[in-house]
Design a protein around this nucleic acid. Structure first.
Length: 283
DNA sequence: GTCCTGACGG
DNA sequence: CCGTCTGGAC
């Protein structure tokens, strides 16, 4: 039988479409409950145009490099490991660490389980929080071996039971490893940009969301499921280049006329806690 | 001083 | 809700 034709596109513009995703569930009822924000489709198109014209760091990373040759079980484990390494770490650093694990044959639950923790630690350096992540990787590998026959959990709830796996990673792994869209992968960029655009709010309130989880739930109430995958790379790259955490480049932004935060020095949810002054001047 | 595609314990 | 975990880049 003839499979769907997958067009070969510029490898760094994968965010444009995700032909490999099959699971667009029919239970679309929740999408109707909340009125979508005005002009959201025009805004998405504007962001897409900006993403095509300006290169973002996230575009130069191919998470599949080297792991497509692995068996399905190992490929899924590699996706999980790469996602675990990614928190608070730049993309290319994460990618290089994952490649070192691959070269040393550690991208399988079985070998990772038996590997020395100090070895893992040295191989993943200098990703952020490498000491904790080396511990988490060993624990995760052991669970995968003992409970999943070397595979990884296949549901969000079971993924969340793994140490070091939170909502952002769980939803990313469901998409990248299992080709299932259970929810939007909301990271710091999606969280910040969504709030600046006024796309999300706390339940029964006009105020913005205070956590990525609140952002995920709020976004999913109006954004059509077809966009749940593409929204991530779209807003991540946009957040890396134009809608940056500090000093967003509103002058270069083509959707500023739609943005309630344009040219305002807003305190974003992501930066509020970190910008807080560690010491008070008491006079 | 702040960011980096977060998660966890207090 | 808050601090903490890592260290390099800017």
């Amino acid at each position: 039988m003839i499979a769907k034709e997958v067009k070969i596109e510029s490898p760094d513009k994968k965010f444009l479409r995700h032909p490999e995703i099959e699971d667009f569930a029919s239970d679309n009822v929740y999408s109707q409950s909340i009125q979508p924000p005005a002009n959201w489709e025009s805004i998405m198109e504007g962001i897409r145009s900006m993403r095509l014209s300006e290169h973002a760091p996230v575009d130069s990373i191919d998470p599949d490099e080297g792991v497509t040759s692995l068996q399905p079980k190992e490929r899924r484990f590699a996706v999980l490991v790469g996602s675990l390494l990614s928190s608070q770490t730049k993309g290319h650093v994460t990618h290089e660490a994952n490649q070192r694990l691959l070269e040393n044959g550690l991208l399988s639950a079985d070998t990772m389980d038996r590997a020395d923790e100090a070895t893992i630690k040295s191989l993943i350096y200098p990703v952020g929080f490498y000491t904790r992540k080396a511990q988490h990787l060993k624990q995760v590998a052991k669970v995968c071996v003992s409970k999943y026959d070397g595979d990884i959990p296949s549901t969000v709830d079971d993924l969340l039971l793994l140490p070091g796996v939170g909502p952002k990673i769980a939803h990313l792994v469901m998409i990248m490893a299992w080709n299932k869209v259970e929810g939007i992968c909301v990271d710091t960029h999606v969280h910040r940009v969504s709030n600046r655009l006024g796309w999300v709010s706390r339940p029964g309130s006009k105020q913005g969301t205070r956590s990525p989880e609140e952002t995920r739930v709020s976004l999913q109430q109006w954004l059509p499921r077809e966009e749940w995958v593409s929204i991530n790379l779209l807003l991540v790259g946009f957040g890396q280049t134009i809608c940056t955490p500090l000093r967003p480049r509103c002058a270069k932004c083509t959707i500023r006329e739609f943005c309630p935060s344009a040219f305002k020095e807003i305190s974003t949810p992501a930066s509020t806690s970190k910008t807080r002054r560690p010491k008070k001047e008491l006079g």
